[in-house]
């Protein structure tokens, strides 16, 4: 990977308005953004600034009212709902603030689920899931249900699940918000490690100072508009 690598996400003149009863609330007002390949990018901003909405559009779970979103070279605005689902499955991993593991599946099965959607063979699935669980330090908890895991462990499973299909982009909405500072730091370190190991782009929204410190690119949003972008150079990253 080099600084010149093609960006994983390009947002051009993106706008999004929500309607609360009959009142329209513009959440994103003409945003242009470029997310670099294999970088740690954090979205910052006060509550209501549009971080989550922007993250949702980068993650292809929401569509802009105006503007264009290109992820991994694909104009996602033009995709049908089914194509968009397939696109997400193949290209985007998700880490949620509340972990959002499927409670009826154990750790192994949660990580395996995206691979089942991909129709991967049992042998390949087994090898990849074991490797990922080992990488997040939960090889011995593979058969535990989410309810039998701590918050930090659940988030590790979620990280493994997000990386299961080797996506180009991982979206993480305040991934450490529901964790204590020590656990949050370890999760952050893990994500950073995994990001480097799998050469994948991570895009966060966070208030966590440690997250901000660890980011390659920091994007500050306010009132639906990007106020500033700070990008570390390759030298800074090292």
């Amino acid at each position: 990977m080099t600084e010149d690598s093609e960006p994983v996400a390009i947002l051009t003149a993106v706008q999004k308005t929500y309607f609360l009863d009959s009142v329209s609330v513009p959440v994103i007002k003409s945003v242009d953004l470029l997310v670099r390949h294999a970088h740690f990018t954090v979205l910052l901003g006060p509550s209501g600034s549009g971080k989550t909405t922007l993250l949702n559009m980068i993650g292809c779970v929401d569509r802009p009212d105006e503007g264009e979103v290109v992820i991994a070279g694909c104009k996602v605005n033009e995709l049908t709902d089914d194509k968009l689902s397939d696109f997400r499955a193949e290209n985007i991993g998700f880490i949620f603030q509340n972990f959002n593991l499927l409670p009826v599946l154990n750790a192994y099965e949660n990580v395996e689920y995206p691979l089942l959607l991909a129709g991967m063979s049992a042998a390949k699935r087994g090898a990849r899931v074991s490797k990922l669980l080992d990488a997040v330090g939960l090889a011995d908890k593979a058969r535990n249900l989410p309810g039998q895991l701590s918050g930090g462990q659940r988030q590790r499973v979620a990280i493994a699940r997000a990386l299961a299909r080797r996506p180009k982009l991982v979206i993480a909405d305040e991934p450490t918000a529901n964790l204590d500072s020590k656990t949050g730091a370890s999760i952050l370190a893990l994500m950073r490690r995994m990001q480097k190991r799998y050469q994948v782009s991570f895009v966060f929204s966070s208030h966590d100072r440690e997250v901000i410190g660890a980011a390659d690119d920091t994007i500050f949003l306010k009132d639906g508009v990007i106020r500033s972008i700070r990008r570390k150079s390759a030298g800074d990253n090292a």
């Binding site: 993650g59 499927l102 995206p114």
Partner: peptide, 16 residues
């Protein structure tokens, strides 16, 4: 509902 959202986010189609 949240599980449905999660399943959809990770790539399950509406038909799924």
């Amino acid at each position: 509902t949240i599980e449905i959202g999660t399943l959809r986010a990770i790539g399950l189609r509406r038909s799924g």
